[in-house]
Simulated scan of single mutants.
Amino acid sequence: MNQSRRAARMGRHHKRRGVVALSLTSMMDIFTILVFFLLVNSGTEQQLPSNQSVELPQSLAQQLPKDALIVMVSKDDIIVQGRRIMSADAAEKLEDDVLPALLQELKLQSSNRLTVAAEERNPAIVMGDKTIPYRLLRKIMYTLSEANYTDISLAVMKKEKPVS
């Protein structure tokens, strides 16, 4: 079968080039970088730790928690980032609004956190049991503000909207 001049020229050109090997090294580098990029950027929302000793109040709040310091307050203990700081009874009995043991731990946690700028807000999430007294919650929030945690949030369970 006769080929056109163009088809014959293309055939000769392809015979000269031979088999082209695909370079997998650069492709693997690109995929490795892509995997790390996706892993780092997929974890922007923070999952709050679950604890059976803390029963959160319910709310219709829609906002998800961001990366922040977690202060958990159960009926018995005050826990910062999973570490027990003091008992809730001892904190409640203190006359002063500032809880010294909690303040010391908060300053330690603040110094350990990586901050980009000095004016950046220090976020904190208080996971308080729904039965703790308000004066204890107020003392904890006041101590957080004394430790320069300016963005304080309260953790709640998302309540489903009633169907009407």
Rank of each mutant, 00 (worst) to 15 (best):
K159W: 00
S59D: 10
Y142L: 06
R138I: 02
S42G: 15
K158M: 04
D67S: 12
V80D: 03
Q62D: 13
V156F: 06
E55L: 12
V163Y: 00
F36Q: 09
Q46N: 08
L154D: 00
N41W: 11
K93Y: 05
P100F: 07
N51C: 10
K15F: 08
M28R: 11
V54D: 04
L24G: 15
P100W: 07
M27Q: 13
I125F: 02
L94C: 05
L22W: 08
A88V: 04
I152F: 01
F31I: 15
S153Y: 09
K158N: 09
L114A: 12
M141K: 14
Q47H: 08
Y149C: 01
L56M: 07
E55R: 12
A90N: 13
A91N: 03
M28S: 14
N51K: 08
D89Q: 15
A101G: 07
T143A: 03
L137K: 07
R121W: 00
F31A: 10
V156R: 01
K75F: 02
K161M: 03
R6N: 10
D29K: 10
L94P: 01
E105T: 13
L106M: 09
T131M: 03
R138C: 00
D97I: 11
P57N: 01
L108G: 07
L106F: 07
D67G: 10
P65V: 06
I132D: 02
A8K: 15
L144H: 01
S42H: 14
G128P: 01
I140P: 04
S145K: 12
L103M: 07
P123F: 04
F36V: 13
E120C: 00
N148T: 06
L114C: 05
V73G: 04
D97S: 13
K139V: 01
G11L: 15
V156T: 08
M28Y: 12
G82M: 08
L108R: 15
E95L: 08
M27P: 00
L114M: 11
M157D: 06
M141W: 00
A7L: 12
Y142K: 05
D29T: 14
Q104H: 11
L154F: 06
A101W: 00
D29F: 10
A8P: 00
L103V: 01
P162T: 10
I125D: 01
P162R: 02
D77K: 12
V116K: 06
S53L: 14
I140K: 04
Q52Y: 02
L154S: 04
E105I: 06
F37A: 15
N41F: 13
M27R: 14
K66V: 13
A68R: 02
N148L: 04
I30C: 09
